[in-house]
């Protein structure tokens, strides 16, 4: 069972949220890796091959939309499901999320139970 554990890459520059999400996913039996800026996210996504990526929009060095687009437009990584989290609840953001190929999109603050069930859905696909 332990070698089959799903790996979640959590990308956020808010240390508090990273701690909370890490605890949440670990308690639900996931393995967690963390990236704190866009470039680190891209690097870790490519090297660690995570099962799902939780991606914030506003990130240092490279924003989440760009990270998502670079992964989704690359055949090698496009199958990794990406769930975008944004503190901006504007239509533009959701549209952007769709345009760059994000698999799901949630607005902060989110309901943890919903987040977990959506992640499960993404892993099922």
């Amino acid at each position: 069972m332990s070698e089959n554990r799903n790996l979640v890459l959590v990308v956020d520059d808010e240390e508090d949220l990273v701690i909370a999400l890490k605890a949440r996913f670990q308690s639900a039996g996931y393995e967690v890796e963390v990236a704190r800026d866009g470039l680190e996210a891209l690097r870790k996504a490519r090297t660690l091959d995570p099962d799902v990526i939780i991606l914030d929009v506003m990130l240092p060095k490279m924003d989440g939309f760009k990270v998502c687009r670079m992964l989704k437009f690359d055949n090698r990584y496009s199958r990794i499901p990406v769930l975008m989290l944004s503190a901006r609840g504007q239509e533009v953001d959701q549209e952007m999320g769709k345009k760059v190929g994000a698999d799901d999109y949630m607005v902060k603050p989110f309901d943890s139970a919903k987040l977990m069930s959506r992640v499960k859905e993404l892993l099922g696909n």
Binding site: R24, A87, R88, S112
Partner: peptide
């Protein structure tokens, strides 16, 4: 609204972790 949401997100997540008995 963006600035306000960010700390709220962390607060909510910690509260919810405690409720779920993670700690």
């Amino acid at each position: 609204s963006h600035e306000l949401r960010t700390p709220l997100t962390a607060m909510r997540e910690f509260a919810s972790l405690l409720i779920d008995g993670v700690a």
